[in-house]
């Protein structure tokens, strides 16, 4: 095809070929433009302003440049890294929302990955009735979040079930404050998160199914024990799923909102980033500008982490063409 006849003819040809396709994907294009890209841009613009949601008051929209971002790192009481220690000096703020969210992600992501992976390996057999067990382990994931929040809150209540059983086996429960104690709240949160392993387990199971049995047979014939098979075959061949789960895990963990559903959103040791954004934007204040800045900080962090993982992803084995 030469370019004789000009651009006009080329465009016409493209349109003739594509019009049907465009029509079909039109909802997506509109949806992306209106509900994804426009909000994304506006969000960044809002983050450069002091934007008070009431909007009808004077001074409710004032340009601040990067003032919101600076405030987030240096002056915001919940986010600050250092706080006064009562003796005139400063100490590290262990209840900083940044620190709490960071700790949460660093602890739950590996635990979730490893434990759910092991569960999947355990249940990846063809023995009779294995389906039932898979079902039972997945079941907690179907309980609506609000309900599970209530369940855990009452189970770990000082008068609740966990204490009841511990008391029965003789443990002194008066010091066990679970969700309400300064130091015990965080571990309790991690523990209650473990029941969601079933969801990840199902994903692992699907990727494990793609490893052909023949490879295992060959290994067995070569005399490899179960543990060796796990490390040398199963893990390397599931790296693509590990990659996917790692990324979704990071995005999910940094945006956890479940503490709010528990009713403990603002409690000192449990104050997570997503809850902070919600509080700033919708609950106590309506500082849309500041909250948008906070959400962009989150976006930046996720972006950087994702990029890092992609860059160092040479270890991922793609089993098939996508």
């Amino acid at each position: 095809m030469t370019s004789k006849g000009g651009i006009g003819k080329r465009i016409l040809k493209t349109v003739k070929k594509s019009w049907a396709g465009w029509l079909f994907v039109l909802p997506l294009v509109l949806g992306l433009a209106i509900f994804t890209f426009y909000p994304m841009v506006m969000s960044f613009i809002y983050s450069l302003y002091h934007y008070d949601g009431v909007g009808m008051v004077e001074d409710s929209v004032v340009f601040r440049g990067f003032g919101n971002y600076i405030e987030a790192f240096t002056a915001d009481q919940d986010l600050m890294f250092t706080i006064p220690d009562g003796n005139g000096g400063t100490m590290f703020n262990r209840n900083s929302v940044f620190y709490t969210t960071f700790r949460y992600a660093v602890i739950t992501i590996p635990i979730n990955l490893v434990l759910s992976y092991l569960l999947a390996v355990l249940l990846n057999r063809k023995t009779k009735g294995i389906g039932v067990f898979r079902l039972l382990i997945y079941l907690p994931c179907i309980i609506p979040g609000v309900v599970s929040g209530l369940i855990w809150r009452s189970a770990f209540d000082p008068a609740g079930l966990v204490n009841y059983w511990l008391d029965k086996i003789g443990v002194d429960v008066s010091g066990l404050t679970w969700f309400r104690g300064e130091t015990t709240a965080f571990p309790t949160l991690i523990i209650t998160g473990l029941w969601g392993l079933g969801g990840s387990m199902i994903l692992w199971l699907s990727s494990l199914k793609n490893i052909p049995d023949t490879v295992y047979e060959a290994a067995r014939l070569d005399g490899a024990g179960p543990f060796t098979r796990l490390i040398k075959i199963t893990v390397p061949m599931s790296t693509s799923m590990i990659f996917y789960n790692l990324i979704t895990g990071i995005i999910g963990a940094l945006q956890t909102f479940s503490t709010y559903t528990l009713g403990l959103g603002k409690q000192s040791g449990l104050y997570l980033y997503a809850v902070k954004i919600y509080e700033e934007a919708f609950n106590t204040a309506s500082r849309y500008g500041y909250a948008s800045a906070l959400s962009w900080i989150l976006f930046a962090v996720i972006g950087v982490l994702t990029l890092l993982i992609f860059r160092t992803s040479k270890w991922v084995y793609y089993g098939e063409e996508s």
């Binding site: 433009a33 426009y38 841009v41 506006m42 909007g55 009808m56 001074d59 929209v61």
Partner: peptide, 20 residues
């Protein structure tokens, strides 16, 4: 694309009371 949207967006920053 982003630049175009940004331009459009920048002109849309609400003034106080504009949506009233």
């Amino acid at each position: 694309a982003v630049a175009a949207v940004a331009l459009a967006g920048a002109s849309c920053m609400p003034k106080s009371g504009s949506a009233d």
